[in-house]
Computed example of a mutant assay.
Amino acid sequence: MSGKGIAYRSKIDISEDLRNGKLIQLLANYQSPSVELHLICPSRKQVTPAVIAFRELLRERLK
């Protein structure tokens, strides 16, 4: 971000910096390998309707 070079990062990690122009995307047509993303709750009691809604939101946005 300070003109220091090129980085290979997940769009999840840098999406805000891409939106506000701090970073620019290179090789836009390059498809990196897919990776799994896990949503982990310490116990089943913590799998609330809000957590389920968040999981569904992530599924939709990260397709």
Rank of each mutant, 00 (worst) to 15 (best):
R9D: 12
K22N: 08
V47E: 09
N20M: 13
I14C: 13
R9I: 05
R19F: 14
F54T: 01
G3K: 06
H38D: 10
D17Q: 14
D13N: 09
N29I: 03
L62T: 09
E56D: 12
C41I: 07
R61Y: 09
I40E: 12
I6G: 04
S2E: 06
S32H: 12
K4H: 10
Q25M: 04
E60V: 09
S10L: 07
S2G: 13
L27A: 03
Q25T: 04
C41D: 09
D17E: 08
D17F: 07
Y8I: 15
Q31F: 08
C41N: 03
C41S: 03
S15M: 11
S2W: 11
P33G: 08
L37G: 02
K4E: 13
S32D: 10
L58R: 02
L26F: 04
N29G: 08
I40H: 10
Q25A: 04
D17C: 01
S15N: 10
L23V: 02
L23G: 01
A7S: 14
G5D: 05
R9Q: 08
G21L: 01
T48H: 00
L57G: 06
K22M: 12
S43F: 01
L26D: 12
S10F: 03
I40C: 13
S43P: 13
Y8K: 07
L37Q: 10
K11S: 05
P49Y: 00
I24K: 15
L58Y: 06
A28R: 11
A50G: 03
P49M: 02
S2R: 11
G5E: 09
A7R: 07
V35G: 09
K22A: 13
D17A: 07
G21C: 05
D13Q: 08
Y8A: 04
M1H: 15
S43D: 03
K4N: 15
